[in-house]
Nucleic acid binder design. Sequence first.
DNA 1: CCGATGACCAAAC
DNA 2: TGTTTGGCCATCG
Length: 104
Amino acid sequence: MSGRVFPAFYDVVRRIPAGKVATYGQIARLAGMPRCARLVGYAMAACQDPAVPCHRVVDRFGGTKAAFDTFAPGTQRALLEAEGVDFRLDGTVDLEHCLWSPQT
DNA sequence: CCGATGACCAAAC
DNA sequence: TGTTTGGCCATCG
């Protein structure tokens, strides 16, 4: 079961500062697998590690995927709002304003 | 044990 | 220019 890349994803997600969000593609890219965004989503789905702020991970459109099973519906958005993340009227994260940059 | 799918994104045709 | 397939690892049935 030795995960090969999941730990790498967790490491990247852990780097995300509060008040910021990252996309699956970015994390996958930083992990060295630009085409493994799917794995990132699955890794977050299996986020058994509390040190991994999977709630700071959103899709490329900023959709927080409220229909998420890991947390109660709407919990993810509440966590992000609590961290200072701005949300749009449609309930998506303002990536233009809160998208995390790999350098910071 | 094996097959299929999955919180996705990007390149190719 | 838009639409479709590909790709990767782990977990579920």
